[in-house]
Nucleic acid binder design. Structure first.
Length: 315
DNA sequence: AACTGGATCAACCGCAAGATG
DNA sequence: ACATCTTGCGGTTGATCCAGT
């Protein structure tokens, strides 16, 4: 890193405690604004931008510094990312003590983790169970941007992924149509044509800071709204509930892409659509209304899934 | 003990929108 | 109307930490 403070020019790199003090004093005096004046007054050799960033991300008094995202926070981010797309600043306003940078970093590392898990476990399932099908059924990992599952702490999420992935991927090629009657219609306000979902997500931003009362909104339908047409063991029913979650369905398409906020939600992945172009574009994306699941999920899909740990066991 | 790879965090950059002169 | 400055946002990168080998 280059430091120019000795020369009276812009300084970059890690902040020192003294610099933090100066910045805090400035905010005490003038409030969190006039960032550029900090430099013009000669208080710090930092740009206004840098000062603002330091304050917002590290020095603000209400931050949860060094505290990992709780399961509830993770869930909120996942839900809101599905709703808003990569609007980290907006999402952060729903989380007390979290910055857009926090949310962004959380999401980034989560995506990496999921991509890694997907990458590590998929080749066997695709190479063995999909052998008879043409390569159109072999997923390219570039086509499957994420495979998140909701409501999980990281470890649980990984466990679920590891256990469900082989069967879910191996069954993808077994159905061509999806009966959406068994699933909720998900509400994406930005997606044209889905304004009237019975499961509309309503966020009610509080007056000052719209961080959510986690107990008061049901982001996705409860189990009672999602009774499947087939009997399932109790521990499997929870996963069926998650089929109503856009992130469960991520395995079938790009529900979490950066452009999701204004994009169609494809349910069938490009590699399953014989019509889709070789470049994996979403031109033939199937909207929820047009999908029909004939026999999904396969019962044995849940056979070897162990029950989730109870919330009290979560870290 | 040393090495390696993944995860996390902090900070930078470019761009866009709004404010101001 | 235009130019300039300020602020805010999202993407990216580099440093550090940590666990596994």
């Amino acid at each position: 890193m280059v430091h120019f403070d000795e020369m009276g020019e812009i300084k970059k790199g890690p902040w020192k405690a003294e610099e933090d003090k100066v910045l805090i004093n400035h905010v005490k005096k003038y409030g969190p604004r006039n960032w550029s004046s900090i430099r013009s007054k000669g208080l710090l050799q930092r740009t206004g931008k840098s000062c603002r960033l330091r304050w917002v991300n590290k020095l603000r008094p209400d931050l949860k510094s060094g505290v990992k995202f709780s399961a509830e926070e993770e869930r909120t981010v996942i839900d809101l990312q599905a709703k808003f797309g990569n609007k980290w600043a907006r999402i952060a306003t729903y989380l007390s003590g979290r910055t857009d940078n926090d949310v962004k970093n959380f999401w980034s590392s989560r995506q990496k983790r999921l991509a890694r898990m997907l990458h590590n476990s998929a080749p066997s399932s695709s190479s063995k169970s999909q052998k008879s099908t043409k390569d159109v059924n072999v997923p390219s990992f570039r086509d499957v941007p994420s495979l998140p599952a909701p409501n999980f702490s990281s470890s649980t999420e990984e466990e679920f992924l590891a256990k469900s992935q082989s069967c879910s991927l191996s069954h993808i090629g077994d159905f061509e149509t999806i009966n959406m009657a068994s699933f909720p219609v998900l509400e994406y306000p930005d997606v044209v044509g889905y304004e009237h979902s019975p499961f509309q997500i309503e966020y009610t931003p509080p007056e000052k800071k719209p961080f959510i009362d986690q107990q008061s909104y049901p982001p996705f339908p409860s189990m009672s709204q999602l009774q499947p047409d087939f009997p399932l063991p109790l521990e499997s029913q929870d996963y069926v509930t998650r089929l109503g979650d856009p992130y469960f369905l991520d395995v079938f398409g790009q529900a979490s892409g950066s452009a999701l906020g204004s994009a169609q939600i494809p349910i069938i992945p490009s590699f399953l659509s014989s019509e889709s172009g070789a470049n994996g574009e979403n031109q033939d994306a199937v909207t929820p209304d047009s999908c029909v699941f004939d026999d999904f999920p396969p019962i044995d899909m849940f056979d070897h899934i162990e029950p989730l740990p109870s919330p009290s066991d979560w870290p």
